[in-house]
Amino acid sequence: DEAVILPAPPDLSVHSTNMKHILTWSPVIVPGETVNYSVEYQGEYERYYTSSHWIPSSWCSSISTPECNVTDDITATVAYNFRVKAILGTQSSAWSTLKELFNRNSTVLTSPRMKIIKDGYHLIVEFEDMGPYFEFNVTYWKKSPNSQELYKIVREGGSLEHLVTMEAGAEYCVKAQTVVEIIERSSAFNQVECIRAQDESHLL
């Protein structure tokens, strides 16, 4: 490796929420200079099946901020390691690596933002678009004695999806959680929301 003059960037760690993974570290300060950083990664395959090969990160080969979105690098549910070095002109620091390997199945899953509307008797639900990995497990029921809970999977966010055709004048309630199949996990349910269908007279 290049001559080691700059200190290796300390405190490397990954922060992951809803399958968005951000690698951060503490900056290397050289007064009056702009220090750049280079990020590389390896998955379980690179660690055990190659001579510990490292791959340049998709977006952070030479950046000046002490943070890198590594979502496009972590693309399998195995343990990943990252390394970062500081670069100043022709000088480079040693690499620093994660203290603990990161697996995306540890991402924090928040409950989904949801909007329910009605179009006549039709109850429509819309979720925020959370990316390709997210489906929404929706539970809904008519608010009446011994009513039954019903379930539906909404495949993607960002569009109005028909949930149920309501009975005139009845109130319906909805709650939902995100489901991320590839890590076999779900979020907590969100706040229950209710809406009342218009009465029959309205349509005459």
Binding site: I117, D119, G120, Y121, H122, I124, R155, S159, L160, E161, H162, T165, M166, L203
Partner: peptide, 27 residues
């Protein structure tokens, strides 16, 4: 995709088989 021209609302319904009955619409 179903667009109600009276309310200008457009919504979607995923269907697996070949028939779909949209009921309780506005006449």
């Amino acid at each position: 995709s179903i667009y109600n021209s009276k309310t200008s609302k457009k919504w979607y319904k995923f269907v697996i088989n070949y028939t779909l009955e949209l009921s309780l619409l506005e006449s």
